[in-house]
Nucleic acid binder design. Sequence first.
DNA 1: GTCTATAACATGATAGAC
DNA 2: GTCTATCATGTTATAGAC
Lengths: 178, 178
Amino acid sequence: MVGRQGILLAAASAFAERGYSATTLRNIADDAGIQAGSIYHHFSSKDELFATVLDHGMTVMDEAFDRADGSLCGQVRAHLGALFEHGPYTTAHVTAFFTTPADVRAASVPHRDSYEAKWQQLLAELLPHLDDEQVQLHRLLLLGAMNSTVEWFDPTGDVTLDQLAHLVTGQFLRGVTT
Amino acid sequence: MVGRQGILLAAASAFAERGYSATTLRNIADDAGIQAGSIYHHFSSKDELFATVLDHGMTVMDEAFDRADGSLCGQVRAHLGALFEHGPYTTAHVTAFFTTPADVRAASVPHRDSYEAKWQQLLAELLPHLDDEQVQLHRLLLLGAMNSTVEWFDPTGDVTLDQLAHLVTGQFLRGVTT
DNA sequence: GTCTATAACATGATAGAC
DNA sequence: GTCTATCATGTTATAGAC
């Protein structure tokens, strides 16, 4: 893997695994097969590289959401698919965002907010008997549960992403007792 | 705040907010009101300080779990209470654990595992119609949802911890459609 | 128990050769 | 477009005074 795309992929992978601060430009350069100084031909700073990774990740999330069928299970499957089937860009969003210095992550807050607004609208239509604040709480819990899967789910194991999506959807809509 | 306890508290707060790598001993010393070098009178390394914070956090979790009434809502309330009512030690566990270098976090893995085993047993008794793997998946989703609250829940807002515990429990047991 | 000073090293970033 | 230095700064950790 070469050039800007190779750097971006190596950066996303490192940020996702170690977080923003623990990832060094030398780490990224090693994984990309170049020298650390060469990164600056493609990106002006570590911050810009990180912001580009997060922006790429949110674009993947957006496209998956917009392509899905609109059913809750379909949207859950799309979100999980974005996390596990489209490289480490989305994973970096989940694992590295919160502990990154506020001024660095600020650039990606609007993109995140617009994605969360899509979920808010979807759930509001699905749950007309609840007010906006209740919907928001349920949304945050659902996204929290889905995003936590990056810390423990193995997509190559014997549970498939489809099965996981059905499990998440069932627990959310009907609970575990059914 | 002075001495070892003051350092520990400042360290937990900093680790919880910024993660392991982004937190410097100078950060911690500043918050504790001492010089960075003085930390080494109480702890032999940054790693040991971090491990002590995580161990303290797991002890808080354990005690909250064991004191609760055994009902799911009671245990959920205890877990959320440990996150929001007993200092930043538990928060550091949630926000800083995953992105910390593996050799540093290794020391706290057994304590974490034993806590998760308590939840596994609780849910297995509550859901006798499910096999162990299904229970495990539901447990991981539930803990993921609860732990995500540290990124967005404000315990001083108009939603109380009791209300949040009931909401989490209701969504888990019966789903959102009831 | 805390301070100051400093050693030893890692990091983000720059400059210029090729 | 990548490389090889190199700079300035920040980091963990140590030693010894008080």
